[in-house]
Every structure is written in C-alpha cells, then in structure tokens.
Write a protein that binds this DNA or RNA. Structure first.
Length: 653
DNA sequence: GGCTCGGAT
DNA sequence: AGACATCCGAGCC
C-alpha cells in the first residue's frame, strides 16, 4: 500500500456505488423517497451515459476518489505512529466537556413547508391532484409527492425525470406567487416567535419556549396549532420538528413529513440515541463530498463517529473534530434570531444556454447577463469593486476570471458589460454553455442614503429580507417590507441564514483543509491558465482544472466541518504569532501530544494546534525525532501554522 | 489584496 | 438531445 508513489491507483470500478449515487443527485438521502433506489439509479445512469454532463461527473468523481485515497494514506501513516489511546482520551475529554454544557432548555422548532412549490401549484390547479408532477422546466425545482415515488427529485434534469416517470406532468414555476405565500406563512410563524428566523422561502426556525410558557401550552400542542393555522389560512401543509437545537429540529421536521410533526424527547439520552443510527448525510452541512470523505474512514452514521474519534482528533484539519464530536452528541446551536446574517458578500447573475461558440452570440449573452445584474444591483442598492466573470464550457467545466478596480462599479450597464468583455475576450474562442457575472467587495448604497446613522440598524430590521434581491419588481417603497420576490432557489438562500447558527458558540479552530497535502498547484498561478483555448484543441492540457491528474484536486474546502472556519476566523488568526497564542493560553496544564509524545504546558486548544503542527510535518517521524532529541521544540509552529503544511506539500510532490 | 476553484443548498 | 442558480470562503500568489 503506501508507497511514496502517492498516486496509488484508487481502483477502477468507477461506476460503482458511490458514483451512481453522485449521478443520482444530491437530494437523495435527504428526503424520503420510495421505490427501489438501485433501480432508479440504474435508469438515471442509463439516461445519462455518454453525455458530456456524465463525463464531467465522472471526472469529478475520479478526482474525489483520488483525493480520498491520499487522505487515507495519510491517515494510515498517522495512525501507525500516533498514540491512539491518548487521542481517544483527548476526544473523550472534549466530549465530556460538551456534554456538560449541553443546553436542553430551549424549545426549538423547525418548520418546513411540504413540497412548497408543488403544493402551491396544486392549490392553483386542483386537476394536478394525484398526478405525478414537477415544477420547473429543464431542471426540476420541486417534485410532487406522487412524482417522488418514481424517484423524481429537485435538481434533476427534466428529461431524466421523464424517463423515471413517463406520465410526469411538468409545470412552470410562479415565483411571485410563492413569494407572496411565503410572506403570509412567515407572518403566521412570527405570531409564535417574533424573532423567528426564516431560512429560505419555505422553512424557518422558531424558539417557542416563551410562547409556551406564556400560554401555558405544551410544545407539541403549540406546534400542532400553528400548523393548523397555516393550513387554515393558506391551505398549505407544513411539517415540523421540535427539539433542543436547530440541527435536531431540522432533522426532526423530516421525520413525519408531509404534514406531520415530530418531537424529540428533551433528554441527553434520547438525543444520543436519536443520533446513534442517523446517517451522517442527514446532518446539515454534510453533502455528497463530505459524506464520501467520512464514509471512507468508516463513519456512516453519527454513532460511528465515536469509534473513530481518534482519527478525527488526530486529523482534525481534514475531518473537523469539534463539529463531528458535537454531531455525535447531537449538540448544535439553539440560538434563533432573524437576520443577523452579516451583509451579503456578493451579488451576481448567470445564465445557461445551449452551447455556442460564435463570438458575437457569446457577447450577446454576456450583455444580457450584464444588464440583468445591473438591474439587480440598481434595484437592490449595491455596488462593488471587483467583477468576476464565470463561464462553463460545453464540457461542463467551469472557470472564472476576475478584475478589481479602485472605484465602485458604475450602475450603468455599459460598465459591467465592458468589464465582462475585457475578461472574456482574451479567453475566446470557446464553446460556452453558461456565462455569469458577479460583483464583490460590495458597498451598500442604502447605507449612505437611508439610515446612515445606524447603518447597522437598517440591517437588523430587515436582515433576512435583504438577501437575494433579484427580480426587479421592487417598486417604490423604501426598505420596509420589500420582501421582494425572492425568486429563490428554494434551498439555497435560506440555509444560509440558518447554517451559521449551527456553529455559533464554537471556537474551534478551523478544522481542516482537506487536502492540504498534495495538490500541487500549478495551474492557477499564472493567470495565464487559460482554459481550453479554442474549441478544437481537443484533449490535452488546458483547463486549469484538468492539468495533470492530481493537480486539480484543489483543496476543497473543508469537510463538513468546515463551517467552523468562520468561528475560527474570529479569534485566532494572527498568523505570525499563532504559537504565542497557544502557549499563552489559559488553563495551562501538562498535556501529552499523542503524536510526538512531548508534554506541553498548554490547554486543549494549544494541544490541538500542536498536534496540527505535528501532522503538518507530513512525515510524522520527523516530528518524533525532533521531540525525542531536542526535547523542547521551541517555536514549533511555523508562521501561519496551517498553511505551512500545505505549502510544503505542495511544492514537494 | 487579487484571483481561482469547489462546495452546499 | 436534453443537466440550475447563488453565495461563500479557502488556498495560493
């Protein structure tokens, strides 16, 4: 096994299980389906076979497989040298601490509209009842429950859906309608918790602790009443989950869907039992990639985390120990508040079309996109300094090119369009199927205009609304209620608001960075990394993502875990002095590094960083030698601890 | 600080 | 035949 080779072939059988699942799409295990998933996957694969889309998926799957195999190699190396017992002991200590701090006092509810878009369409066209139908042409936005039984799900290509369900009826989406209903529904929820947090247009989090106290009503009864109210006033059904924190509540809302609710007992034992057999994929933040990553080390259910706590602790950077241990315990944020999402970081628009190679036609598309983005920016009051062009080739590979200015992008569409051209023209000729423009380094124009004094305040007031502008519509009215039509992509946005919460009180250090090791970075470096120049240049080189196999593997962000990164940013950083922090930490006490066995006067955090350092050496032995000989690894931490490892590995290879 | 890429919903 | 949109942040120079 091992072998310095580093490129030890993962193995063929690429078509297997994991890839088929990938092809099947993301929302698979998330929502309840029916029928034989294997058969469904077969039909999907058959319909896809040979398409460019399929080839691209295969390529990505292969990259991931390679990345995982490299991580496993590192894992093997680490486990071989480390003191497993100590690592487990360390994890156990953290678990005990987390358990001691568990908060079961708040009654959190996650409400989720059942097949929202589909339900609304059904409302407006009763003849759809009982028919399997889907909302959205081209790509399914939402499938009715009857359609789901056939394996149709959101995100799926329409033609694939039709293969799975020949009698499928496909209707168009009516965003303004969804938006209006969404607002109406959220207002109902707010009667129970004025500070509820809308998570997208069809779901939200509430803390009904207070409501229940004041109305002397039990949680389940309260939620049932709320759901009935929604149904009475809108004729739409909603499912709900009641639990001690947001993550649990969200998972619970799926339990008795549609039109049902589920409450988890508010005891530590019940929560842990609930987590034990829960698929890791059900955890918000764990998507296809992280699921595979975790599965590769034997973690399939949340209960499995415990058995692998040593690996997770030793390779925190890759797997996110803190996140996983909390997940194992079923602990997450129980803070529910509206907006609070800081300002948005970017605003953009993109459009997919039938692949074209003609320069004039491409520029036409670019102009359309520029105009659309321009309208959005104008109506929502944003401008920015950096413009990023995104394009997708007919092979489905995606590239971006950006340019920054010292000035704010003018709101005249000519500005965006010309910048877009500047970025795109040098790339041509290409055959494209998508063009997008995005502006970052934003500035909120309304801050100056409107409430300039307490700019922040403005934000709080309509925080959650502020996201996702789009859709011009927006007529007069100032920031008041412009609940605009969030044309929403349904999932997306909302989660955004919700997710950060899960990591709230954390302070973990960032967790990982996946392939910190290898992933040589050649490409990107010169901006010259042009994609396939010219259509013909068939195979070979090109594309930044494709150069030599491993290259593109890019350090994907972190695993599930990742999110903790934000928390980390808050404190820590201070690149050059990471080690000072560590050593100067509080509750200092002797701790032994499970890798190099050195005893350190530091706290858990410090120990953690030290372990990271040990791992960063790539060659564990090196660290051991160092510690064994020179017992005081003085200043072991490379400036910028984490990146240190990366760089090294990067070049090396 | 600029730029690119991949993740997640 | 046919396969989304939007946003975020990490990593690298």
């Amino acid at each position: 096994m091992q072998i310095p080779g580093e490129k030890n072939a993962p193995e063929p059988s690429q078509d297997s299980a994991s890839f088929l699942r990938r092809l099947a799409g993301a929302s698979v295990t998330k929502a309840g389906l029916a029928k034989d998933q294997t058969e469904i996957n077969r039909i999907i694969a058959e319909a896809s076979k040979g398409s460019k889309f399929y080839e691209n998926e295969k390529r990505k799957d292969k990259e991931l497989t390679g990345r995982i195999s490299r991580i496993l190699k590192t894992r093997d190396e680490v486990l071989r040298e480390a003191d497993i017992a100590k690592a487990e002991h360390y994890a156990d200590a953290l678990i005990a601490k987390m358990e001691a701090e568990r908060d079961l006092t708040q009654i959190i509810v996650h409400v989720d509209m059942d097949a929202f878009y589909a339900s609304v369409e059904l409302l407006d066209d009763p003849t759809l009842i009982d028919k399997p139908f889907a909302v959205g042409h081209g790509v399914v936005s939402t499938a009715s429950y009857a359609a789901r039984k056939h394996g149709v799900r959101s995100g799926m290509a329409e033609f694939v859906a039709r293969k799975l369900c020949p009698q499928l009826v496909v209707v168009s989406a009516h965003y303004p309608r969804y938006s209006a209903l969404s607002k109406q529904i959220m207002d109902i929820f707010r009667r129970y918790d004025p500070t509820m947090c809308a998570a997208g247009c069809d779901e939200g989090y509430l803390n009904i602790t207070r409501y229940c106290e004041e109305h002397l009503i039990a949680a389940e009864e309260c939620v049932r009443e709320m759901r009935e109210t929604v149904h009475r006033e809108t004729k739409l059904t909603v499912s709900a989950g009641i639990a001690p924190n947001k993550m649990l509540a969200k998972i619970c809302s799926d339990k008795n869907k549609p039109n049902g609710q589920f409450m988890l007992e508010f005891t530590s034992a019940a929560v842990k039992a609930f987590m034990h057999d829960l698929s890791i994929r059900k955890i918000p933040g764990v998507g296809r990639v992280n699921e595979r990553l975790l599965e590769s080390i034997g973690i399939k259910t949340c209960g499995d985390i415990y058995a692998h706590r040593a690996t997770v602790a030793l390779m925190d950077r890759y797997f996110g120990m803190h996140f996983l241990l909390q997940t194992y315990l079923g602990i997450a944020s129980n803070v529910v508040e509206p907006g609070q999402r800081e300002e948005r970081k970017s605003i953009g628009a993109e459009r997919t079309f039938h692949a074209i190679g003609d320069k004039e036609l491409i520029l036409e598309k670019l102009e359309e996109v520029a105009a659309e983005l321009n309208d959005d920016m104008e109506s929502s009051g944003w401008t920015g300094k950096t413009v990023t062009l995104k394009y997708k080739l007919d092979t489905y590979q995606v590239f971006t090119r950006a340019k920054s200015f010292n000035r704010w992008i003018s709101t005249k569409k000519e500005d965006l369009f010309s910048v877009g051209k500047e970025l795109l023209l040098p790339e041509l000729p290409l055959r494209l199927r998508l063009i997008g423009l995005r502006v970052t380094k934003l500035k909120d124009l309304r801050d100056d205009a409107d409430s300039k004094p307490g700019s922040i305040k403005r934000f709080f007031e309509k925080a959650n609304v502020a996201s996702s502008p789009r859709k011009k519509r927006k007529v007069s009215h100032a920031p008041e209620e412009d609940e605009e039509l969030e044309e929403v992509r349904l999932t997306q946005d909302g989660f955004e608001d919700a997710m950060p919460g899960f990591y709230e009180n954390e302070e973990v250090e960032q967790s990982l960075d996946t392939d910190g090791l290898d992933h040589y970075t050649h490409q990107g470096k010169h901006k010259g990394s042009r994609p396939p120049t010219s259509a013909p240049s068939s195979s070979a080189a090109r594309s930044p993502g494709t150069l030599t196999g491993p290259s593109s593997s890019r350090a994907t962000s972190h695993p599930p875990i990742v999110a903790t990164g934000s928390a980390k940013r808050k404190r820590t950083h201070s690149p050059g002095s990471g080690e000072d922090n560590v050593m100067g930490a509080d509750n200092v006490r002797g701790q032994t590094c499970p890798i190099c066995s050195k005893v350190l006067e530091t706290d858990n955090r410090g120990l953690n960083e030290h372990i990271d350092f040990c791992l960063s050496k790539g060659a564990i032995r090196e660290a051991q030698v160092m510690s064994n000989n020179a017992k005081s690894l003085k200043q072991p931490f490379p400036a910028k601890g984490k990146s240190g490892s990366k760089m090294k590995n990067t070049k090396k290879k």
